[in-house]
Computed example of a mutant assay.
Amino acid sequence: MDHLISLNDLTLEEIEQILNLSEKLKKQQQEGVTHHYLKGKTLGMIFTKSSTRTRVSFEVGMYQLGGYALFLSSNDIQIGRGETIYDTAQVLSRYIDGIMIRTFAHSDVEDLAKYGNIPIINGLTDLMHPCQILADLFTVYEHKGTLKGLKMAYLGDGNNIANSLLHGCSKVGMDVAIGSPKGYQCDEQVISEAKEAAKISGSNIILTEDPVEAIKDADVVYTDTWVSMGQESEKQSRIKIFEPYKVDGNLFAKAKEDAIFLHCLPAYRGYEVTEEIIDGSQSVVFDEAENRLHVQKAIMALLMDK
């Protein structure tokens, strides 16, 4: 594993290695055991799209691993103001040991990996969010004790979360159902890649416009905001379109009795999910948020501790 750009690039063994190391690092952190695997290393964090969890988890993670995280906003660097990705990648490769980028265009991440000489981590693009889904899989494993054979139901926009869920679940043998309205389905290439992975893992993929069909007998229920950054002008139309996909008590009851609820946050209570669900006993959203830290530490350690 030279980079983390898409979960489709990873083998099952590589995903399991990340999850196993995440478990080890979480235990060490809880027990106060020093684990400076990246002592003397520097991670450059490029943000053209802001975030709470991504910045804090990567920055704190590098500190706990004994390294240093350098925050680079769009105001701090020349990307987007004339300098090419090629030049940026070449220069940063001579200063730092790895790059995490959270941005809009997926091609920016791919180009950094193509032209640079250091590991690149996709912290989020409009197409994919692999770090989040690895944290989700780790959270499910913690609460269910397994991944293979479980059913993951995602309701809402077929966005970067849904795309990476298709990749991740199909790799580890989880059944995955995506319930999205017409015109808001997942990326066609991602669907094709996930179906190929499912042939190997035995995963079942369900793509439907019916939220009840998607959530029926699910072990894990997942949703995300209906209005992502950059879509604010579409807010009113999206609220109307996605209303049937709101995870409330009636819809959640269609899942298994012991189903858990996931949300990558930030959440907007009363829109994609009701308070009774996200703040209820079956919600594990804050375990999920914490696990971004442990999983990303595992990713950085595996990529940068060469």
Rank of each mutant, 00 (worst) to 15 (best):
L92K: 10
S93T: 11
I96D: 14
G98H: 07
G98S: 14
G98M: 09
S107P: 01
V109L: 15
D111N: 15
L112D: 10
A113I: 04
K114G: 08
G116D: 09
N117P: 00
I118C: 13
P119F: 13
P119W: 13
I120D: 04
I121D: 07
N122G: 11
L124W: 04
T125A: 11
D126K: 09
L127C: 09
M128A: 15
Q132A: 08
I133Y: 01
F138M: 11
H143P: 03
K144G: 11
G145I: 03
L147Y: 03
K148F: 08
G149V: 02
G149M: 03
G149Q: 04
K151G: 04
K151E: 07
A153K: 01
Y154F: 15
L155M: 09
D157E: 08
D157C: 02
N160L: 05
A162T: 03
N163M: 10
S164R: 02
L166Y: 02
M174L: 13
V176Q: 07
I178S: 04
I178E: 03
G183V: 06
Y184Q: 10
D187N: 15
D187M: 10
Q189S: 11
Q189F: 06
V190Q: 03
S192L: 10
S192V: 01
K195C: 00
K195S: 03
A197Q: 12
K199D: 13
K199R: 15
I200A: 04
S201G: 07
S201I: 01
G202W: 12
G202C: 12
N204Y: 10
